[in-house]
Amino acid sequence: MSLPTSLPELLALVDFDQRSLFISAAAIAFNPTFWNIVARREYRTKFLTRAFNGNRQAACYALAATIFSLGLLRDFLYERALRDQPSHPALQGEYINYAAYALLAVGNLFVISSTWQLGITGTFLGDYFGILMDSIVTGFPFNVTSAPMYYGSTMSFLGTALLYGKPAGILLTLHVLVVYLVAIQFENPFTAGIYAKRDKEREQAKAAGVPYEEKKEL
């Protein structure tokens, strides 16, 4: 049997009677929606920083732990959804497995190396807490793609789908990609605005001949 070459063919191979499929899709969409809403509220109101008695570092780490935990839950629900779905013969075989492991390896490399480059606060929205990086990271994997964590995660989803031989996994991976592309459209301009504001304040301080200090007030 050949691989599905169109969306209708792919949809025909998915068991939509399984509730776990929709739970997984909801978890995939919820995570970036959650962290964008929470991070923007933090940026505007400092509600998390206030909850941690003004310690924005601790507040950021708390959000990081929450996002990481939600990611683990999302991955668990994804794997459970795949187990409930039918396999396809065309997605089972030696070369498919090689492709799956390659996607998982590259995907995890992107995620881990980008986390290493950014650190915990850089990875988990520290910008919204006022914890800004000194300069833009341009080394690997950011010299390959501007969103290595998102694309690396997408590759891992696809690799897992191929490893399980599940067409539903390919469909959910497309869902992941769309969700992340939408998230990028919201996050990148907002984050760029945060750094543009910081750079403007630096220039104003330099022009005034006074040392620049990042604002830390609540």
Rank of each mutant, 00 (worst) to 15 (best):
N143L: 03
A183I: 00
A161P: 01
P167G: 04
F190Q: 09
F190D: 12
W116L: 13
Q117V: 15
K166R: 15
Y150R: 10
A25C: 08
R198P: 01
L171N: 07
F52R: 09
Y212Q: 08
S146D: 15
K215V: 06
V178R: 03
D199A: 06
G54I: 00
T49G: 12
P86H: 00
A51S: 04
W35Y: 15
F140D: 10
Y195P: 04
L162A: 02
T160R: 15
F30A: 13
Q57H: 12
L177M: 13
Y78P: 11
N53V: 11
A12T: 06
R50F: 00
L11E: 05
I120G: 05
A25D: 14
F76A: 13
R40L: 10
Y43P: 04
I120Y: 08
Y43K: 12
H88S: 10
S146F: 09
F140L: 09
L73E: 13
G152D: 05
P167C: 01
T160G: 00
Q57A: 13
A65W: 12
F186T: 04
R83E: 15
E214C: 07
G107S: 06
R56C: 03
G122K: 14
Y128N: 05
R56H: 03
I136P: 02
L13P: 05
T115R: 09
Q85L: 04
P189M: 03
F16Y: 02
L177S: 14
T49I: 05
A12C: 06
K197A: 14
K197F: 07
V137Q: 15
L70P: 06
R80G: 01
Q57R: 14
I28N: 10
F68E: 04
G209M: 04
A64Q: 02
Q117A: 15
G165M: 06
E203Q: 11
K46S: 12
G139P: 11
A27N: 12
A147S: 15
M155H: 04
G159R: 00
R83C: 07
A62Q: 00
G54K: 06
V210F: 03
P148M: 08
L73C: 05
S156L: 03
A205H: 07
I37K: 04
A39I: 08
A168Q: 06
F186L: 12
G119V: 08
Y101F: 15
M133S: 15
V182I: 11
R202L: 12
W35T: 06
L172G: 03
L103A: 01
E213K: 11
V176F: 11
Y98T: 10
T5L: 15
N108T: 11
E42P: 00
T138E: 13
F142A: 09
V144E: 12
V137W: 08
W116F: 12
L104M: 08
N36Q: 14
T173Q: 14
